[in-house]
């Protein structure tokens, strides 16, 4: 895993929007390296910049509101940020595909599932109608929707939400992308369905050796599916390491507190760690650490100087002046 060249490298990505005449900072320096055949979890609260990160990779940021986009996103060494819309379109779908939280919103209610899969295949792979049809059938079987063509002829409203998400996944992987971005794909599903979709994503990843960026607010889901995790807070990656290390020995106080705030039946009766205060306002641009105002460990230095995102131990990056002390919290 570690030895190979990363497929996608994001460096110091900064995104700002104009909001009611004011500057809102969505991302304040995101660094992530994404590899093939690896599930990279991106975890953070709502508004922390998870989806903006994903949208930057596929070049789908709302252009009107965008004020600043700096840093770099390289795909196999080539810069994506300077590409034209035309060039990006050939990437999307064929090289990088994406699935979302609410499949119902992204499937067109007026077309059958079959038509929607065929559209993508024909656009990117240049197959004729019958080839596309055969491929669509194959894909539906792959995602567990049967191969008798029943779902192929169904409209989205005829499917349950779990089936819709499977159909979305079928469309996403239809052109054999190297990379799949899954933005909270199981959040609106019941736990039993969630377990099945997670399993399906893992199987597909193993089968196709895809890289996956799995976005979630739920640390337990991340623990279930990811190989590596980045924790994002207020538009900044604060910690990044393997799943085992993150859960075993967190090196950022935010991660540590998040882990302690998950209700666990086995720790019944013990008070949950609640992180005091509110998430940093997007308009604020503090000099020091973004988490300092809510951090129980914060000292003078934390308010004065922003910690750099560096490796504190082998393969364990953290942006905290006192990373070594975080696990004691």
């Amino acid at each position: 895993m570690g030895a190979a060249e990363p497929l996608i490298v994001i460096e110091n990505l900064r995104v700002e929007f104009a909001q009611d005449g004011q500057r809102a900072i969505a991302l304040r320096g995101v660094d992530i390296s994404l590899y093939k055949n690896e599930v990279h979890g991106l975890v953070g609260e709502s508004g922390s910049g998870k989806t903006i990160t994903a949208m930057s990779i596929v070049g789908l940021l709302p252009r009107q509101a965008l004020k600043l986009l700096s840093g770099s996103i390289r795909y196999e060494g080539r810069e994506l940020l300077s590409r034209s819309e035309e060039e990006l379109r050939s990437y999307r779908g064929s090289k990088i595909a994406m699935i979302f939280q609410e499949p119902a919103k992204y499937l067109n209610p007026a077309f059958t599932v079959g038509e929607q899969i065929r559209e993508t295949i024909r656009e990117h792979m240049g197959l004729d109608r019958s080839q596309a049809n055969a491929r669509a059938r194959e894909l539906l079987a792959l995602v567990g929707l049967g191969n008798d063509g029943r779902v192929l002829a169904a409209y989205p409203h005829e499917l349950s939400s779990g089936m819709k998400q499977r159909a979305m996944i079928a469309i996403a992987i239809s052109c054999n992308p190297d990379f799949l971005i899954a933005d909270e794909p199981t959040t609106s599903l019941d736990v039993t369905l969630q377990a099945q979709i997670l399993k399906l994503l893992r199987t597909l990843k193993d089968m196709k050796k895809m890289g996956v960026l799995f976005i979630s607010h739920d640390l337990s889901v991340i623990k279930e599916i990811a190989d590596r995790v980045s924790v994002i807070y207020a538009g900044k990656i604060v910690e990044s390491t393997s799943v085992t290390r993150l859960f075993g020995h967190p090196m950022h106080p935010y991660t540590r507190l998040l882990l302690m705030s998950i209700p666990d039946a086995r720790r019944k009766g013990r008070r949950l760690a609640a992180i005091a205060g509110q998430v940093l306002d997007a308009r604020a641009d503090p000099q020091g650490c973004v988490f300092a105002p809510r951090c129980p460990m914060a000292r003078d230095l934390c308010f004065k100087e922003s910690p750099t995102f560096i490796a504190h131990e082998q393969d364990h990056m953290s942006a905290c002046h006192f990373a070594e002390e975080a696990w004691k919290l």
Binding site: V191, T192, Q194, A195, Q196, L198, K199, R202, D218, L219, S220, V221, I222, K223, E224, I225, D264, A265
Partner: peptide, 27 residues
């Protein structure tokens, strides 16, 4: 049992088994 096994990250169903394992068995 299915519900317990589906809890992500934990796996309450059997010792050490993850949700995915159990769901596979069930399916």
């Amino acid at each position: 049992r299915t519900l317990l096994a589906s809890v992500p990250g934990g796996g309450f169903g059997r010792s050490g088994a993850t949700a995915a394992d159990i769901v596979r068995d069930e399916s």
